[in-house]
Structure formats: C-alpha cells, structure tokens
C-alpha cells in the first residue's frame, strides 16, 4: 500500500496523434495541497482530468502509463470508472452548480442517484454538513430552496465544493477554481482549501504562480506537456533548479 494519494508512472496522454502529456512522473502525498502550475495550454487541465478518468469523455484522448490512486492503477483492468469518480471530487474553472436545481437539490442529486444516504433526515444532515464544510452554510441556510442564480460567483464555487464534499471523496481536484471569481471570493476559497487539506488531498491547477505559492505545500511546474520540476513549494519558489521554472515563477516566461 502506497502512502501517496496520487502517483503517476510515465503517464502519457495524446489527443489523436498529438501528444499533450509526454510521460510525467510525480508523487502526491496525502493531505496536502499540490499545485500544478504552468502557462495556458501546457496540459494541466488534461492531466488533472486523467486523475478521475473524466478524460474518457473525450473520444480522441488516449492514455498510457499508470496513474495510481492510493496505490491502485485507475487505468488498470476491471476498474470501475464510476466508483473512481466517486472517490475523487472535481471542481471546475467555471462555477457550474446545476442551474435548474435548487441549492439543496444541487447537493442532494449526487447523494440520491448514487444511493449514498437513506431517508430524508440523513440527506438533510449530510447536506448541512457539506455546506458547513464548504463554509457556505451561514450564507445560505435560510434559502436552500433558492436557485444558484441568487449566489455570487464565489458562493457558486463553494456550492460546487459542497456538492463534491457531500460525496465524501478522498481527493479533491480543482481546475483553476478561482479563475472566474472576484478577489474576495478567491480569498474565501483559498482559506477554505487551507482548511480542507487537513482532511483531504487537494490537487489544484492554477495558471497563477502567486496562488500556488500562497496555498500549496508541493508544486509541480508543467511546461509543454512535460513536468519540468516538482517539489516542496518553498524550495521551488526560492531555489528553482531549472531555468524555465525560475523564469516562470519570476513571471518572465512568455
């Protein structure tokens, strides 16, 4: 049994003939924030989507190598893709609570369809618990039957986090979760992530080195599909070994 939450071994991803991830190897320890940073188009979102097999939705995408989730290769044979996804929660760049469902129903739907909870009472308490965890309960407690359109961008994003947490995943994947959120909302979400890492392993994709340095413990720098460098955040930012990393964290890499 490995004590890494996620580990990749020579993971390669191609869209058709175009290879976008060119064999990456890294290990993400449990209960930390791991930031995956790099310029737009370097393959970070693609890589992130390979960790919960969301990449399967793209028919052109081909994955080779291994991605281990707590020691188990999720690209191995006889893997139940749906249960992998249930163990790994995902938050997206665009805050995407289901617009046609109420705040309550947004969280309830995953629990109901996956038959995770039984009965109204358990459902109610699980939803309250998830909202509390996502630091949203105080703001929406008296309007659970409102639609997400009544929420701000940052609140919507925390609703998405609550929807994910309700499933009690082991790992959280976040794909630039603050890209469409205002500064106050961003700060709230960053504080929330610092809180959540006590219990969950968090993999955060960001195109802002500053965000990576603020909240991550480990960081990986991805450039043109290759993992240039990875390691403890402080070390990478203060003493990068690779020239590309150095230029990127100083903000002079085009």
């Amino acid at each position: 049994m490995s004590n890494y939450a996620i580990e990749t071994r020579n993971l390669k991803i191609a869209y058709g003939k175009k290879e976008v991830i060119k064999g990456v190897n890294f290990k993400i320890p449990e209960k930390i924030v791991f930031a995956l940073m790099g310029p737009s188009g370097c393959g970070k979102s693609t890589l992130l989507r390979s960790f919960n097999r969301l990449l399967d939705l793209n028919k052109d995408a081909r994955v080779s190598g291994e991605a281990l989730l707590f020691g188990q290769n999720i690209y191995g044979e006889n893997v139940d893709v749906m249960s992998v996804r249930r163990e790994i929660g995902m938050v997206f760049q665009y805050p995407n609570p289901f617009p046609h469902l109420t705040i309550y129903e947004n969280i309830a739907i995953g629990l109901r369809l996956n038959k995770i909870v039984q009965g109204r009472e358990e459902l109610d308490s699980r939803i309250k618990w998830a909202l509390e965890k996502a630091s949203l309960l105080d703001e929406v407690e008296d309007r659970l039957d409102d639609y997400p359109s009544a929420l701000s961008g940052g609140q919507k994003q925390r609703l998405v986090i609550a929807r994910v947490l309700a499933m009690k995943p082991k790992v959280l994947l976040l794909d630039e979760p603050t890209a469409n959120v205002d500064p106050v909302g961003t700060k709230n979400i960053e504080n929330l992530l610092m809180e959540l890492k006590k219990e969950y392993t968090i993999v955060l994709v960001t195109h802002e080195p500053a965000q990576a340095s603020r909240i991550s413990d480990y960081v990986g720098f991805l450039y043109l599909g290759e993992l240039v460098e990875s390691g403890p955040t402080a070390r990478i930012f203060e003493n990068p070994k690779h020239e590309l990393t150095d230029r990127y964290v100083r903000g002079i890499l085009a």
């Binding site: 249960s83 992998v84 997206f92 995407n96 289901f98 617009p99 998405v160 929807r163 499933m167």
Partner: peptide
C-alpha cells in the same frame, strides 16, 4: 448546454443515463 455541466455530473460518478437526464432537465 455547456459541456462543463456534463463534466460536473460525470465527475459525481453518475452513469451516462443519469447525466443525460440531468442535462435534459436543463432544457425544460
């Protein structure tokens, strides 16, 4: 319907049928 809602539904571990039902609900 933006692709991100499908991704959201799939990432909750839902089946193709369940995801389709959610998306169909959005076009009422």
């Amino acid at each position: 319907i933006p692709h991100t809602y499908r991704e959201a539904a799939y990432s909750l571990g839902l089946s193709r049928y369940e995801v389709t039902r959610i998306v169909a609900g959005m076009i009422r």
